[in-house]
Design a protein around this nucleic acid. Structure first.
Length: 410
RNA sequence: GUGGCCGUAGCUCAACGGUAGAGCUCCAGAUUGUGGUUCUGGCUGUUGCGGGUUCGAAUCCCGUCGGUCACCCCA
């Protein structure tokens, strides 16, 4: 049987790498005062149709369940999160700083950095309109990446603002209801021939050259200036750049938006996010109105970049050596003592040691070899010396005799 | 979804019309109470799948499934 396209098996070595990423995400989020939450993997399809915007709806893994409900595997977290927050908005002190490490499903053609199933760190700050929140969230993203061993030479946060584009549009007589259509054109302007952009923009009476000129400007608009200032105060200024070419596809973004790219431009976007100040209001039919912003960072592109950057790869490999199968290997040299050896294994495990041993009779040399291969640091040999055992340090090859019934104390 | 390239042992690949091979891994032995080296031996394949051309197909052709790259979009 073949795997479904875009889905992954996680053998122990893969699982260790995945967990290294998820563990690092969680550790840095907690350092920033974020708390973890989660929601359902399966949701009614309406949840996503309501607000996500065209792209994601077309990529849904959806089906009709046995109760004839039309459901979809989650492709993103924001709709579930906004529902959860709207339902109990008064229960939580503002601002909320919540994170989640969900597995997402998107029906796309798979490619480097893009699978049909992936993990994504989601972090959101809800209930704070100040740009200080934007800065805090972006600082979190930067520090998450630094925790993997990346520096300002490896990645950059491209900062932009939908508000800036809104102002640009309305100042030239654009109608607010055409805004999203305009954003879509701007989003693609960088990689579209200028004549075509001109044609697309003509209904709005705007010239492609104006758009491209604004895109190239590095002048931070009001909100962004504070974000950049905050990040600079933290010593993180080198990680961000103003780049109005970033617009983002999702319909619900309102103010600050950003995307994170590797400097080498070998990979897809590492992370992306922004403000969605109106979404809570929309999702709750006006009952809850809280400003919000969030970020997503996927494990697939991140793993690729870790592999691209030697320092990050070494950091990962070093972390993996802590994930050895066992620390102590008990060698049974005399089969008559197997019962005693099992008792010893049990006492060591009760004491919290990671212990393994041969389930079936094996030559002593073979057992030592297995101890090596499992990465044990010590071998405990149960044999002629009983009731004492030989404890051998597998790195230094030093041996000493210890009474079996006091070994657990070490 | 559209187009280019690719699918051979668990892994990396060779053979490119004439009997499917190598390295690594794995298993066993040298070494019946002492280990990552070395040496020796061994296992593993409907050459992704289906059809066609041919005396003969892993090799050429068509289809299909999967991978990959580009477009698209983004994590």
């Amino acid at each position: 049987m073949q795997l479904l396209p875009g889905f992954r098996d996680f053998y122990p070595a893969d699982c260790a790498r995945r967990n290294y990423i998820l563990d690092t995400w969680r550790a840095v989020c907690r350092r920033y005062g974020f708390v973890e939450y989660d929601g359902p993997v399966l949701e009614p399809i309406e949840l996503y149709k309501k607000k996500s915007g065209g792209e994601l709806v077309g990529q849904l893994f959806d089906f009709v369940d046995k109760g004839e409900r039309h459901v979809a595997l989650r492709p993103e977290m924001t709709p579930s999160l906004t529902r959860m927050v709207a339902a109990r908005a008064k229960d939580f002190r503002k601002p909320l700083k919540w994170f989640c490490v969900p597995q997402f499903f998107r029906y796309e053609k798979q490619q480097r950095g893009r699978t049909r199933e992936f993990y994504q760190l989601n972090a959101d700050i809800i209930g704070e309109e100040s740009p200080a929140a934007d800065a805090e969230l972006i600082a979190l993203v930067i520090d998450v990446l630094r925790a993997f061993g990346f520096t300002e030479n490896d990645f950059v946060v491209r900062l932009s603002s939908r508000t800036a584009w809104e102002d640009f549009f309305t100042a030239r007589g654009g109608n607010p209801e055409d805004e999203y259509a305009f954003f879509q054109i701007v989003d693609k302007a960088e990689r579209t021939p200028i004549e075509k952009t001109d044609a697309l923009l003509s209904p709005f009476g705007i010239k492609a050259e104006e758009v491209l000129a604004f895109m190239r400007s590095k002048e931070p608009v009001a909100g962004l200036a504070q974000v950049v200032g905050d990040l600079t105060s933290r010593g993180l200024g080198a990680f961000v750049e103003i780049d109005y070419a970033v617009v983002r596809g999702l319909a619900y973004y309102t103010g600050t938006v950003f995307e994170v790219f590797d400097r080498g431009k070998n990979e897809r976007a590492l992370a992306g996010g922004g403000r969605y100040d109106n979404l809570l209001n929309l999702m709750s039919d006006g009952k809850t109105n809280l400003p919000a912003l969030g970020v997503g960072m996927g494990d697939v592109v991140l793993a690729n970049l870790i592999n691209d950057v030697p320092a990050a790869r070494e950091k990962l490999e070093a972390a993996l050596t802590n994930g050895r199968p066992c620390d102590v290997y008990v060698i049974i040299a005399k089969e008559e003592l197997r019962g005693e050896a099992l008792k010893l294994v049990q006492s060591l495990r009760d004491a919290g040691q990671e212990v393994d041993y041969s389930l079936t009779p094996a030559k002593v040399g073979k057992q030592f070899q297995t101890a090596e291969q499992l990465g044990a640091s010590k071998a405990v040999l149960v044999g002629d010396e009983w009731p004492q055992v030989k404890v051998k340090d597998l790195a230094t090859r030093e041996e000493r005799l210890v009474a079996a019934d006091s070994l657990w104390r070490e």
